[in-house]
Amino acid sequence: MDTEGARIGPSAAHAGTTALFEEAGFHRMERTQARVDGRIRWLMRLDLSRSELRDR
């Protein structure tokens, strides 16, 4: 979910935020039809073929 920098409650954050996933190396792929508290949910993807991820 894209919080747009706003605070969110724990029930809205259970699936994670886009910022959390982006910090872990994921990228936004596309918007979904789903909303949480009116905020957009994104399909996120992690590219496992990137060399820095293989070296962990």
Rank of each mutant, 00 (worst) to 15 (best):
P10E: 14
I8F: 03
R54P: 04
S11L: 12
M1F: 03
I8V: 12
V36C: 06
A15D: 08
R35P: 05
R45C: 13
F26E: 01
T18A: 09
L53D: 12
F21V: 02
G38P: 03
E22S: 06
L53K: 11
T17H: 00
L20C: 11
E52A: 08
T17Y: 00
E4V: 05
R28N: 12
R41I: 12
W42T: 01
F26Y: 05
E52C: 07
Q33T: 14
Q33C: 14
G9K: 06
R35L: 11
T3W: 00
L53E: 10
T3F: 00
G5M: 09
E23K: 12
E23F: 11
E30G: 14
D37F: 00
E52N: 08
G16Y: 05
A13N: 08
S11K: 10
A6M: 07
R54D: 08
R56W: 13
R28L: 11
A6L: 06
I40C: 10
M29N: 12
D37Q: 00
A12I: 07
R41F: 11
L48G: 11
T17V: 01
P10S: 15
A6P: 04
D37E: 04
R50P: 05
G16R: 06
I40P: 06
G25N: 02
R45V: 15
D47I: 04
R31F: 07
D47L: 04
E4C: 06
A15R: 07
D47P: 02
S51R: 15
R28Q: 13
L46F: 05
G16H: 06
A15I: 13
A19W: 04
L46P: 01
A15T: 10
G9H: 03
R41N: 08
D2E: 04
D47C: 05
A6E: 07
F26W: 05
P10I: 08
A12P: 08
S11I: 07
R56Q: 10
E23R: 15
E23M: 12
G38I: 02
A15M: 14
L20Y: 10
G9Y: 01
T18H: 04
W42A: 00
I40L: 10
D37N: 00
